[in-house]
Design a binder for these strands. Structure first.
Lengths: 213, 213
DNA sequence: GTCTATACCGAGATAGAC
DNA sequence: GTCTATCTCGGTATAGAC
């Protein structure tokens, strides 16, 4: 359990509220969680919450802000290392996989936001949460592929996101799908597979050129 | 707008209710849609719904059943053609992409179910909805890859699912991510890219052997 | 900053007439 | 098979004491 909103510049009680609310919202969703539920988790009564947040929506916004800012900070760390591009991609995927698989709160909230597909929130998510990682990922990918070909880096980036998110969201369904083995519970193994699929997709046989810039 | 529950063996009014409910549930989710909302969409009053379904949960179950059965039937058609394995994979991905991108109701309900991650429902989804397509996909993939290597077919299958689902769920966020172009709104183009990524992932350099059977 | 008490609303569901 | 009327519950949010 991580990234449950250690956002700074919030007073300690507000911080605790956001932390608890994040866990509950992630788990059961906005509608199923009542202000009473959140209050109970914080050992206070519901009306006290309104001293810290004007209403339920504001609290939810604060939760998203906190969780995604936290995630953003942690993911950024992945990119600082100095290695060959391919090994860098490998590490980025491995560490992102560990992060996303272990951080249930972040993953669920992200999945929920993608469900809504609200334009404003998508812009916020993309620009404030994803953009940094995506740009650095783009750079790595362009270093890996042969100079002569230009594969679709936007497609590659979103595929990395998609594979990471989907494989770790699959959870309880995985065991019922064909060919499932104990192996597939192993985060590092899945990360390895994702790395190879992205790498081969980028390196081999791009279907067509694209004016990437 | 498709697959909105043309389930047979339901009386016509019940069928209409399921159809409308599917659209509403997919769009706004179980909790946000009231029985009154559904009734209004059917031009009846809320209590009349209880003549056809014992409660809200039962109606939701009927919706899932109808939408997923429909989807299952449509996807199954994709596999009947006779072609070389690689071309077959190509077609399967292309047609699945068109289906999943156009069927907003199915995609949203599936995404919502994956959010809950309830073991029983995951088993239902996997076995009743996914299993057929997955097994046939598995067969195709095994025909494509060189006999000498055994790649992880479970990983490949779930990656196909993940890429298809994610890329078409991305919707409004896509335009805010690096490198987005008008191209990426084109279903067939994305399908092409997914096909190539899966193909190269399966054909080239499997990271390690696996006892697949 | 937290509480009790409460207003207000809309939800799911049922009874019983037609 | 559909309706009107109604019950009951739990939700968000506010007022005002401490």
């Amino acid at each position: 359990m991580n990234s449950s909103g250690n956002s700074t510049q919030l007073k300690p009680t507000a911080r605790r509220i956001v932390e608890q609310a994040a866990r509950l919202f992630a788990d059961q969703g906005y509608d199923l969680i009542s202000m009473r539920d959140i209050a109970k988790a914080c050992d206070i009564k519901a009306p006290s919450l309104y001293h810290h947040f004007s209403d339920k929506q504001s609290l939810y916004q604060a939760v998203l802000q906190a969780v995604f800012a936290q995630q953003n900070a942690e993911i950024a760390e992945v990119f600082v290392t100095q290695m060959a591009a391919e090994e860098k991609l490998h590490q980025v995927i491995l560490l992102s996989a560990r992060k996303i698989s272990s951080d249930h709160v972040f993953r669920q909230l992200l999945w929920r936001e993608l469900l809504q597909n609200d334009p404003e929130r998508m812009q916020f998510l993309a620009e404030e949460v994803m953009a940094q990682s995506c740009l650095q990922l783009q750079e790595i990918l362009q270093q890996i592929q042969p100079n002569s070909l230009q594969t679709d880096s936007h497609f590659a980036i979103t595929s990395v996101m998609g594979l990471l998110l989907f494989h770790f969201q699959l959870g309880a369904m995985r065991q019922y799908l064909p060919g499932a083995q104990a192996l597939h519970q192993d985060v590092d193994y899945l990360a390895e597979q994702i790395f190879h699929m992205i790498k081969s997709g980028v390196v081999y046989a791009p279907p067509q050129r694209i004016n990437d810039k």
